[in-house]
Design a protein around this nucleic acid. Structure first.
Length: 939
RNA sequence: GGGCGGUUAGCUCAGUUGGUAGAGCGUCUCCUUUACACGGAGAGGGUCGCGGGUUCGAGCCCUGCACCGCCCACCA
């Protein structure tokens, strides 16, 4: 006996255990010889992370694809694994150490710290994998990989060395995006722009004196959003704030950087300021003498037309400085505190006040306030105004990024990008939805060198060793580096390894082949590369998809995947991206606990068509939880009515129209689902499954079958066939829904295992778990049965509708009279009499040549039926109802007439459309005639 | 500044070879009929953001505008 209610928690646990025991998702398991390979590599979640809604969506879709393809007979490998997630993980562990033991990583050795991270990974690394399992992800868990596994690490070293040999990896001293919180360089992609707009307004000579306390208050809330105008006095004249000929005014959003200014640029053709080119200014506070020079970079229309140049702290200024050979004066340390120790002018005492400025060691934002106050105090501040602009922030740290001059390793990605572009242009890899192709093109066409070194400890340490003189040896191991050094120096020297690690995405880029065993020439690599489909969200097209393309093409000489399916991002209710740092993560496991994994999965699949955002509503999940319950109850109904799977049952040989009909509808649904899943139209597939299961099987088939199953004096053969069909269709429902609702369907499938013929896997394996076969139902389509049952369904629906409209009490039985029924209709009525009587609450069915007086009339597929309801209904209501329908028909006819009367329409519309309109008109007129008769009778 | 997406029923959203608009939830009415009230039956509800255009015919194609959102670049 089935349990009275479907309890997801119990079933999920039981089914999961069965899958695990059977090793159900092992690559190639059950695949017949010659089966086509189908491989998906999972987007590896952060090893120390936990499942969020984005993961749930991402993996639900991958799982639907994998289960479907597995059922279709492909040799499926869904390759799982996790990512070491350099910054994110190191951040978590550092925070933990600080909270629990009040120590920082800088208090410990690198080795000790890494041991702490590995310990944390050992402790929490299994969380996300277990959560994926709870969702029902059918990965080949025996092949789970981690980006810092030995094998994958070997792949990283090999790739780094190979790219270096190709001349595509190099070291350079440049400005980088420096994250002062994590004290590491980050790539362009990890920088996010944040809008700032301030509110403080002040002008020299205005009504109010400058109030630095007031400014401080504003800046304490937000240090950005203002433009500051400084007067830089010209060398050789006495500065007078009221005499414009004694200074040049520059504007900046970052006052503190003025300490590092080494020049002022003016456009060579600037009419107002051009004459100053060649003069020098005395940099206030610092005392440094810096040149005013001509450069196109200074736009006369912007700001004051003169630009202060800080080569050490601005990307554009760095380039300008290079052109004019300006000094590069660094004024910040790694934590973005003012560093004047490096500043030669201060050291040389050319700024005698440096002691009293008290800037050294100040945080950059404190320094900003102080510099402005000092400039104001000394009469160099001209104006402050609110200024909307964007400020770069670290995506992980959320602090303002500093352009900072450091040595870093770069990948010259341009040649790789070219190949990646071509592969998509040639159609070797295809994006769905297609519009993402353009995004991919635009980025790759304008790609900049990729800064891959990070000043972190957690990650793949860069395989570079330095000799005593700084000579660089790039090798896969220290032994190899020593060999290179021996060749170079002619003797053994001590080498030191580069301390930096690689960007996490460096190893992620290799994922599609490193997980399959590269650089070893493994069987899996041969069989599953290139993989079939990559399923991911658009936010990592640049971070990950494009880079996998580059690395895959470079090292495998072949694209990593043939299809890229880009799905929506699940956002919070305000539309903000969910992230741990924002604390707005919705836990899918809570939803699973509440409604079951199948309900969540079905919801996500049904919502997968949405554009770029999904705002998940629990009402929807609840609706699909109800769907799961509905299926469960249908199966219980089957059980209670002796509908067991019958040995030797062949659906093709079914005789009863009702049974033929539901099998035909099942075939239609199977087609729709099988078309939807591989073309990534998950919502269409889910909708087809839902419609068939609830709208057809439960609402109509089971109801129509009840007289046969439960009635007296039923033909035993008919009853047996119906019972077997019910059981068979429930099997089909399990199969059709399995890609979306694996737990429920697997459970039902297993519960029915004891009936009829023993279940077998496609491979012949006797395991009683894991649906592995997608049914081929094409032969079950049956137009005659669809027409016959269609008529019965319409008749019952129309009777119900009319009864309700003319206010026939629900409990009242009424007779039904068929008027001038055709022979075929008579036959249909005859065989469906009990069902019609039961479902439409009809007391008896009679045939007549004319409709009885005082009856309500319905027209079903051209046939007229009447409900004689004298004394039961209000005839005025019926009159109004018929008149309304008449009016509507007149309207419809008018629309059609307009078309048919239009010579252009007749001449240009395709014949079938014209024909359809003619048919529509004929049908409407026939219907109208019958309604007119009914109205006459009522009059 | 460049690009992309959105604007359809009260809410959340589907709707590509252009042919008289759909789902889930909610609302209203009725029904506790032994699979299921996480249910059944019925109903109501939309000038498909606005203006032009193409077409016999436009939610769908073109164009302009408005509002919302995202991405990229720049920002003295």
């Amino acid at each position: 006996m089935m349990d009275k209610t479907f309890e997801p928690a119990t079933v999920e646990a039981r089914v999961s255990a069965a899958w695990e025991k059977a090793d159900a998702f092992k690559a190639g398991r059950g695949a017949v010889p010659g089966a086509e390979p189908y491989c998906i590599v999972i987007p590896p979640p952060n090893v120390t992370g936990s499942l969020h809604m984005g993961h749930a969506l991402n993996n639900t879709l991958q799982d639907a694809l994998c289960r479907f393809e597995r059922m279709r007979g492909k040799d499926v490998l869904w390759q799982p694994g996790t990512d070491h997630a350099g910054i994110a993980t190191q951040m978590v562990v550092e925070r933990k150490l600080s909270a629990e033991r009040n120590i920082s990583r800088r208090d410990m050795t690198r080795e000790d710290f890494l041991n702490e991270v590995w310990a944390w990974k050992a402790e929490s690394g299994g969380t996300i994998v277990n959560q994926l399992k709870r969702l029902g992800a059918s990965c080949d868990w025996s092949r789970e990989r981690f980006t810092m596994d030995e094998g994958l690490s070997q792949a990283v070293l090999k790739v780094f060395v190979a790219l270096h040999k190709q001349g595509l990896i190099y070291r350079a001293k440049r400005l980088v995006n420096w994250d002062p919180k994590f004290q590491t360089a980050i790539s362009d992609l990890e920088v996010v722009q944040v809008e700032k707009s301030g509110s403080f307004k002040w002008e020299r000579g205005g009504e109010e004196a400058f109030d630095s306390a007031k400014l401080e208050k504003v800046l304490n809330r937000d240090p950005g959003g203002h433009l500051y105008y400084f007067n830089y006095p010209l060398e050789g004249v006495a500065y007078d704030a009221d005499d414009a000929s004694t200074f040049i005014t520059v504007a900046t959003t970052r006052p503190e950087t003025m300490l590092g200014d080494t020049g002022v640029a003016v456009h060579p053709e600037n009419e107002k300021l051009g004459h100053l080119i060649g003069r020098n200014v005395v940099l206030p506070l610092v005392g440094r003498i810096i040149p005013i020079f001509g450069d196109d970079y200074a736009d006369p229309e912007k700001g004051t037309g003169a630009v202060k140049i800080t080569p050490a702290h601005d990307f554009n200024d760095f380039e300008v400085g290079k052109r004019h050979k300006l000094d590069v004066v660094n004024i910040l340390d790694g934590e973005a505190r003012i560093l004047l120790a490096d500043n030669a002018d201060f050291l040389a005492g050319s700024a005698p006040e440096s002691e009293t400025l008290a800037l050294h060691g100040l945080d950059r934002f404190a320094a900003r306030k102080r510099v402005v106050a000092l400039m104001a105090e000394r009469g160099f501040l001209s104006k402050i105004e609110p200024h909307g602009h964007t400020v770069p922030h670290g995506d992980r740290s959320d602090v303002v990024i500093e352009p900072w001059l450091t040595d870093q390793w770069y990948v010259d990605v341009r040649p790789l990008a070219q190949r990646s572009l071509k592969a998509v242009r040639d159609g070797r890899t295809k994006f769905t939805p297609e519009s993402w192709t353009k995004v991919y093109y635009d980025w790759l066409e304008n790609i900049e060198p990729w800064c891959v070194s990070r000043q972190l400890w957690w990650g793949h340490q860069i395989p570079v060793w330095y000799g005593p003189d700084g000579e660089v040896f790039v090798a896969e191991s220290e032994v190899e580096a020593q060999a290179l050094a021996l060749g170079h120096y002619g003797g053994t020297v001590e080498l030191t390894r580069d301390e930096d690690v690689l960007d996490t995405w460096f190893s992620s880029a290799l994922w599609p082949f490193s997980t399959l065993g590269w650089p070893e020439d493994t069987a899996e690599l041969k069989r599953y590369y290139p993989t079939a489909t990559l399923v991911t969200a658009f936010d990592i097209i640049f971070f990950w998809v494009a880079r996998m393309m580059m690395m895959g093409l470079n090292f495998m000489d072949e694209v990593p995947f043939k299809d890229v399916y880009i799905h929506a991002i699940v956002r919070d209710e305000k539309g903000a991206k969910m992230s741990k740092s924002k604390g707005n993560v919705i836990d899918p496991l809570t939803i699973v606990d509440q409604y079951g994994a199948d309900a969540l999965r079905f919801t996500l699949a049904a919502m997968a068509a949405q554009g770029r955002d999904i705002k998940l509503s629990t009402a929807r999940v609840e609706g699909y939880r109800n769907f799961a319950t509905k299926i469960w109850n249908a199966a219980r109904f089957a059980e209670l009515n002796g509908c067991a799977r019958a040995e030797g049952f062949d659906p093709v040989k079914v005789k009863q129209p009702l049974n033929r009909w539901i099998l035909s509808e099942a075939a239609r649904a199977a087609e729709e689902i099988a078309a939807g899943i591989p073309s990534f139209k998950f919502n269409e597939a889910a909708a087809a499954a839902y419609r068939f299961t609830w709208g057809q099987f439960c609402d109509w088939y089971l109801e129509l079958a009840k007289p046969v199953l439960q009635g007296e004096g039923v033909d035993p053969a008919e009853k047996a066939e119906t019972q077997a069909t019910v059981a068979h269709v429930i099997d089909l429902i399990c199969q059709l829904l399995h890609p979306f609702m694996p737990f429920l369907t697997e459970e039902l499938w297993a519960q029915k295992a004891g009936e009829g013929a023993p279940r077998k896997l496609a491979s012949g394996d006797d395991a009683l778990v894991c649906l592995t076969h997608w049914p081929d139902l094409a032969a079950l389509r049956n137009a005659a049965a669809e027409a016959e049952i269609g008529f019965v369904v319409d008749l019952i629906s129309d009777i119900r509708s009319v009864r309700s409209e003319v206010n026939v009490p629900a409990g009242t039985q009424a007779p039904l009279v068929l008027v001038k029924a055709s022979a075929a209709t008579r036959a249909t009525i005859e065989s469906w009499r009990p069902m019609i009587e039961r479902l439409a609450r009809v007391s008896e069915i009679a045939l007549a040549e004319t409709a009885p007086a005082q009856s309500a009339q319905i027209i079903v597929r051209g046939e007229v039926a009447a409900l004689p309801l004298a004394g039961i209904i209000d005839l005025d209501v019926e009159r109004v109802r018929l008149s309304k329908e008449m009016a509507k028909l007149d309207q419809d006819i008018a629309v059609v007439d307009k078309k048919l009367g239009n010579p252009d329409f007749m001449a240009r519309a395709p014949e079938e459309v014209v024909e359809e309109n003619r048919d529509r008109k004929t049908a409407a007129e026939a219907r109208k005639l019958k309604i007119a008769e009914a109205l006459t009778r009522l009059a």
